[in-house]
Amino acid sequence: MHPHHPDTTSPLRHGRRILTQMVAVAALAFALVAGSVAAAPASITTSAAASAPTARSAADTCPAQILKSGKLTDVYESYYKYAYKKIKGTKKYRKAVVKAKRKLMVSCTRSCVRTKTKTVKRYKYKTVVRKGKKVKVRTGKPKSVKVTVPVYKSVKKTVTVKKGNRIVKVKKKVKAYTYEKCKTSGDSAAGSPVKVTMLDGSYALLDFGAFQRQAPISGTLTGLIPGGYKLNQDNQINLTRGNLTLGRTNVFIDDDCHGGQVSAAIRTGTPTNVNLDPTRQSISTLTAAGGVTATAYTKIQLPLELRNDDDGCDQPYITTGFTEFTQTFFLKGKIGKGTGLAKLTLTSPPDPLDVQACLSPGSPTSPCNNSALIIPLPIIVSTNLLVSIKVG
């Protein structure tokens, strides 16, 4: 063979040809999906866009918690509101300004009041009678004790105040709590540990426009209910760790093998991990009315498995390195009668997902080693999860 003529039968040359074909297949899929997303019904695109800010706003605020007597409890704030009060001795009502209390809502990522420990002197007192009056006087030496106190800061903010029979807004300097990320542990005094397990039948629906695939989901998530589980009240679950895996799923299927045998040209690799994003706080809420809502911020690590063209029909698939991208899932469900938390369904609505697909051969547990062979592959994803929630 002439030294200046490349060996067209070499494995490297053959591999490049296969990858070129895979890029062409993926590019075709990209065009199909992009068209389907552009032509998606208005009920999907507009409703998802309209509801997202509201869902995010509700999901990103949680009741503030403060540590008291070794237990996290909700923080309440006072505010003014209008109410109608009955005029004494008549059947008439008048509009009045009244004071009320409500839970203080803050960012879920930093929802615990920052505290510090300081030493104070405590005295013992006794009651004595002086000049015919009972008074308390100190006895003995003071005792030094350590107490936990909140950390405050002075901020200028808009607050509501009462002026006569009106509520007005004014800007003033106030003393406010400072916040930090809630400390999570298995200590029942700090909260109730929670374990969420995916049951058989859980899946993600991947909509490529021209076709759909169901990808099975398994794994567990763990978290904590700050302050402990409360009966007949809303309970917030701070999800802290865990790992979900996506089962191997055929993506592009053809009948090119052995004159009509159906097989996958591209399928998802193993392991495909769906991890909680450690930089954001994923929150789930069990409502007193039996509803369940959850916001899960995830990082997805996706490797692929590629069939080695028509020659690879009976050969092992080529594995690729993984690509990593983020996705936020907004889930909701309702606790059913008879099953309770042992088995409930959580679903998330269809939402665009910008998948980054690696077509470069490599280890599925290592990042993609060739950025030039990473292509975008937009799909629409929704989930249907069967879960078991164990508290304590």
Rank of each mutant, 00 (worst) to 15 (best):
H14S: 10
I18G: 03
I18N: 12
Q21M: 12
V23S: 12
L28H: 15
A31V: 14
A31G: 13
A34I: 08
A38K: 09
T45C: 00
S47W: 08
S47Y: 07
A59P: 01
Q65W: 05
L72F: 14
K81E: 12
Y84S: 13
T90N: 04
R94E: 15
V97M: 01
R102L: 07
R102I: 05
V106P: 02
R114M: 14
T115V: 12
V128H: 09
K131C: 11
G132E: 02
V135P: 04
V135W: 02
K136W: 01
K141A: 15
V145I: 15
V147P: 04
V149F: 10
V151M: 06
T158L: 12
T158R: 14
I167G: 09
T178Y: 06
A190S: 11
S192V: 03
P193V: 00
V194R: 02
K195E: 11
V196D: 02
Y203C: 01
Y203A: 03
D207Y: 06
A210M: 10
A210D: 12
F211M: 09
Q214D: 12
L221T: 01
I225C: 03
P226S: 02
Q236D: 12
L244H: 01
G247Y: 03
G247K: 04
G260H: 10
V262P: 04
V262A: 13
S263N: 14
R267M: 10
T268A: 00
G269N: 02
P271E: 02
N273V: 08
N275C: 03
T279R: 13
R280D: 05
S284R: 01
A294Y: 05
L302E: 07
R307H: 02
N308S: 14
P316T: 09
Y317R: 07
F329S: 10
L331K: 05
K332C: 02
K337G: 15
A342P: 07
K343R: 12
L346D: 00
S348Q: 07
P350G: 00
L353P: 02
Q356A: 14
S360K: 03
S363D: 15
S363H: 10
C368P: 07
S371F: 11
I374L: 05
P376F: 11
P376A: 10
V381Q: 13
S382N: 10
N384Y: 13
N384L: 00
